[in-house]
Amino acid sequence: MAERDTTDPCPLPLRTAYTAQESLVVEDDAGNAEAARITTILEGMLVAKGLLAKGEADQEIEKIETPGLHLGARLVARAWVDPDFRNRLLADGKLAAAELGMKVGEAQLVVVENTPDVHNLIVCTLCSCYPRSILGQPPSWYISKTYRSRAVREPRTVLHEFGLDIPEAVRVRVHDSNADMRYLVLPMPPAETVGRHEIDLAGLVSRDMLIGTAVLQR
């Protein structure tokens, strides 16, 4: 069992090593089949008890499948070409997203800007909070226990593992999304945005850039 670090006012256990399998448990075929069976039966029971309408879950599935990278990329591209929109996005992400017809379902979307001085990284140590209403499902690594645990304590090492080395002159700012806010990183734009179409610029944005584990090659 890990020993306690007693020099800290809130003693934390020294670290426990996890394997990749422990960090992200993957169901085998039997596990998936069992879970699918239980879920189907559960849905049926909830319909029988009047808590769900028949077919309602299917409709909700369509809804949750809709958001994705394309929405986040649009927000970023607009911010890159329009400085006033960028300011509004940084001030109130939910309101700014609504201008583009995007409904943020979470309490608030906080957009944090990468600059030549600051690099941002997003994590949820307690579970897996992520701006799902805009970006859809988080990557598997984001919900893994080792990412959740290590991103707050050794962000530069984690970023190095993602192929990103942040220079010493740039400070790393980690955001632990533990409560009601959801976060999106506004990556630094390409060297030249003048005259470029927003759609092309949106095409440069990757999901990992919006979490902070990648940057645009400039």
Partner: peptide, 21 residues
């Protein structure tokens, strides 16, 4: 970060932001 972790010393300007009630 250098306040939060006893083994975080190399990058004294690095920070962590989280939500507190």
């Amino acid at each position: 970060q250098t306040d939060l972790w006893t083994d975080y010393s190399e990058y004294p300007d690095d920070t962590l932001v989280t939500e507190i009630y």
